[in-house]
Lab assay of single mutants.
Amino acid sequence: EPLWIRPDAPSRCTWQLGRPASESPHHHTAPAKSPKILPDILKKIGDTPMVRINKIGKKFGLKCELLAKCEFFNAGGSVKDRISLRMIEDAERDGTLKPGDTIIEPTSGNTGIGLALAAAVRGYRCIIVMPEKMSSEKVDVLRALGAEIVRTPTNARFDSPESHVGVAWRLKNEIPNSHILDQYRNASNPLAHYDTTADEILQQCDGKLDMLVASVGTGGTITGIARKLKEKCPGCRIIGVDPEGSILAEPEELNQTEQTTYEVEGIGYDFIPTVLDRTVVDKWFKSNDEEAFTFARMLIAQEGLLCGGSAGSTVAVAVKAAQELQEGQRCVVILPDSVRNYMTKFLSDRWMLQKGFLKEEDLTEKKPWWWHLRVQELGLSAPLTVLPTITCGHTIEILREKGFDQAPVVDEAGVILGMVTLGNMLSSLLAGKVQPSDQVGKVIYKQFKQIRLTDTLGRLSHILEMDHFALVVHEQIQYHSTGKSSQRQMVFGVVTAIDLLNFVAAQERDQK
């Protein structure tokens, strides 16, 4: 057995438009009618409502009807409940999964919650491996369901041993009777949507819809739904939504950006999952974080739909894509998950301010006199920076000697690579993860907040409520011999709460 199987392995699926269902090699399930009293909570997966979006479509000038398939009504709160249950049931049916076995899954959280929910009911041990950027709410729900959680670096490539995929496979090879159901490759993922989600949409719309818009992560949702719609409703256009920084969209030119990270969760990847059939997507749109969270908040405030950030991405694209539809036509959007997962993220004004998705003037509360002053007023001194090749031991000596707790790590040209902190280095040394002679590049981390000289002290204040420091950066445009230009970030300084307090105190003292 291989040590790991690539999540982007070539698909062996034989589905073709027009091929009889009787030739399918898979076990198919028909939607079942729910009894009045459910035998367990797993029976509350599927049969989610279709809700008309009344205000947002009109606000953006849509002539067509805009409908939302509300997947956050599933038992675990997301569309991923469907595939989690289906993968477990299919693994039980073919004898792969037996009582007492362990389920391991690399996930952005929602599939993990679905699997942990099913594992709690069915009696399996469950280990979820997820990147650090995923919300604390997801972690809390997983723990409450009895799952064990392993976190991995957000910026690790999918084929790196440190990625959530790599760590999951390492655990599988170490733990007896453990299984990775593997949402990236498992046919049960798109089949769950082909058999149930798509049929529900067709039934709820009486077979009449002209466009379907869905955000894409593993691709199982859009693949399964689109294949069924292509068979039953061939005139329906399928629109895929991919965040900026991901590479799922086609044509490839759409993916060209210097951005590699994004805040919206559960969609987009740096590889093409095996289950994603991009041939059934008629057109791709890219979405960005700001519009995703703005539209998610709009869905909550104006439509009462308590959905997550990827739902915002989907609707932001839908109001663009559906401009081509006329009166009497219908566009369906998939709202994948609930706001429950993001209470401390985009639902929080403070978080939105820190990330730059909300401006101070958007909030009406009274601010102190210094709130709208610029960061450049602080008069920061030149920063202490270190090269990635310097040793951890030497870096600790320098920081202690100069009285700093942290320093930016830059390359020879001064471009920011990340940050090192005294606390992080000492804990890594004590844990045996690094040696004093190791290069400081081994303990770089990139989960820090950046701020510009033109940003306000109010925004800085919000950042420092949650973080010990902020890195002050400025952009530099560099022209190359080819005539092309590129933008790079340079370090201007490091600012802490002490710097802000000293500035405010000094100004008030001078005024007296």
Rank of each mutant, 00 (worst) to 15 (best):
E265D: 05
K433M: 14
V241Y: 04
V339D: 02
L363H: 13
R278M: 04
Y262A: 05
G393E: 14
L426K: 07
A506T: 15
V415G: 14
E290G: 14
P408Y: 00
G483C: 15
I444T: 11
E263H: 09
D467K: 04
E263W: 07
M466K: 15
F357G: 02
L353D: 04
L453M: 13
L387S: 13
G393F: 15
G423I: 03
G308Q: 00
I477H: 11
T257A: 12
V315G: 09
E263G: 05
F448N: 11
P436V: 15
L347P: 04
I267M: 06
C392E: 10
V333I: 13
T395L: 10
Q450R: 05
L353A: 11
R400D: 10
D349L: 09
P383T: 11
S287V: 08
A407L: 14
D438T: 12
N255K: 02
L399C: 08
R459F: 13
G379T: 12
L417S: 15
V491G: 14
G308H: 00
G268R: 00
R400H: 11
S437Q: 13
R509T: 13
V386S: 09
H474K: 04
G245L: 03
Q302E: 07
N255L: 02
G403C: 14
C307H: 06
L453I: 14
M419Y: 14
V494R: 06
G304L: 00
D277I: 03
P243L: 00
Q489M: 13
D405C: 08
T456A: 15
L384W: 07
Q256I: 12
E508V: 08
E365Y: 10
A318T: 14
H394I: 12
T496P: 08
D270I: 02
M490V: 13
V281N: 04
L387N: 12
H394N: 11
G266Q: 01
Y342D: 04
E327D: 11
G414R: 14
I239F: 08
A322M: 05
I444D: 12
S485Q: 09
W369R: 07
V280D: 07
N424S: 02
Q323T: 12
N341T: 02
N502G: 13
T279A: 13
R340Q: 07
T385K: 08
F271K: 00
P388W: 13
V264W: 00
G240F: 02
L399A: 13
D337M: 01
E360G: 15
V339K: 05
C307W: 06
V504Y: 12
L430T: 15
Q507D: 13
Q435M: 15
L248E: 00
M419H: 12
G414T: 14
L429S: 11
Y262C: 02
M425G: 09
E303W: 04
D242A: 02
L453N: 12
L464Y: 08
L299Q: 03
L460F: 14
I398F: 15
D411E: 08
I300L: 03
D362S: 05
K366G: 09
L378F: 15
L373N: 10
F357W: 07
D242V: 00
L299H: 03
P336W: 00
A249H: 04
T389R: 14
D289A: 01
T482L: 14
D467P: 09
W371Y: 10
Q302N: 12
E252Y: 12
Y342A: 02
E412L: 13
R488I: 13
F503L: 14
K367R: 15
K402V: 14
T496R: 03
Y445A: 08
K283F: 09
N424P: 10
D405P: 11
L399V: 08
L500V: 15
T260F: 15
G266L: 03
E253C: 08
L335G: 01
G268W: 00
M425A: 06
V264E: 01
N288P: 12
D438M: 15
H372R: 03
G379E: 12
F285S: 10
S338D: 08
Q329D: 07
A316F: 12
R340I: 03
A382P: 13
I334G: 00
M425E: 05
K367D: 07
A407T: 14
E291N: 08
K286A: 02
M490W: 12
R340P: 05
T456G: 14
A296S: 07
L353R: 09
T294Y: 15
V315R: 06
L430N: 14
F346L: 09
Q376H: 12
Q354S: 12
I238R: 00
L305N: 01
D289G: 00
G309N: 03
E465I: 03
V280I: 04
G483M: 13
H480T: 09
Q447F: 11
C392Q: 09
T421L: 15
V333E: 08
E291Y: 09
G493A: 12
M343G: 02
V415P: 04
Q487C: 13
G266D: 01
L384K: 12
Y269L: 02
Q302K: 14
E253H: 03
G328A: 05
F448V: 14
S310Y: 00
T395Y: 11
L276K: 04
L248V: 03
N288L: 12
M343F: 06
W370P: 01
G418K: 07
G304H: 00
I247D: 09
G309H: 00
E263Y: 12
H480Y: 12
G458T: 08
K345L: 02
P336T: 06
S287W: 02
T482V: 11
K283L: 09
Q478W: 13
V434S: 03
G483V: 14
A506I: 10
T389D: 14
A497I: 12
E324F: 15
F293L: 03
K484A: 05
Q259L: 13
W370M: 02
L325N: 01
Q439M: 07
H474T: 10
I239Q: 04
I444F: 02
V317K: 08
I463Q: 14
D411P: 15
Y262H: 06
E263A: 12
L254T: 08
K449S: 12
G308T: 00
M352E: 02
M419W: 13
R488E: 13
L457E: 01
K512P: 09
E475T: 04
F346A: 02
I396S: 14
R509F: 15
V491F: 14
D362E: 13
Q323A: 10
I272R: 05
Q511S: 11
W370H: 03
K345W: 00
V473R: 10
R330Y: 10
P408I: 02
L399R: 03
A470F: 04
D349E: 11
I451D: 08
A413W: 08
K355E: 10
I498G: 15
D282N: 15
M490D: 13
L417A: 07
A407Y: 13
T395W: 10
T456M: 15
S381E: 13
S485L: 13
I498E: 11
L500W: 08
V409L: 07
L453T: 14
E263Q: 11
T482W: 06
G312W: 01
K446G: 07
K355M: 12
L501H: 00
T294H: 11
Q439Y: 15
L429P: 09
L464N: 06
V264T: 06
T344Q: 07
K402N: 14
D349G: 05
V443K: 10
G403N: 05
Q476E: 13
V339R: 04
Q450I: 15
P408H: 02
G493T: 10
Q487G: 15
I247C: 05
R509I: 07
K442I: 15
F469T: 09
L353H: 04
Q489F: 13
G268Y: 02
A249Y: 04
G245I: 00
M425S: 03
P273C: 00
Q489G: 05
D510A: 05
P408K: 03
T496F: 14
G493E: 11
D362W: 11
T274P: 04
A318D: 03
L358T: 04
D411H: 08
A311V: 07
L429H: 13
D270P: 03
Q507V: 13
L500I: 13
D411L: 09
E324G: 11
F404C: 06
S348L: 07
I272V: 10
R330K: 13
L248Q: 00
V280F: 06
L471E: 06
L501E: 02
D438F: 15
Y479Q: 10
L347K: 05
P383F: 09
V332H: 02
Q376E: 13
Q447D: 15
C331L: 11
V280N: 06
E303C: 02
E327K: 13
T454I: 09
I390Q: 11
D242G: 02
V319H: 04
D362V: 13
E360C: 09
H372G: 13
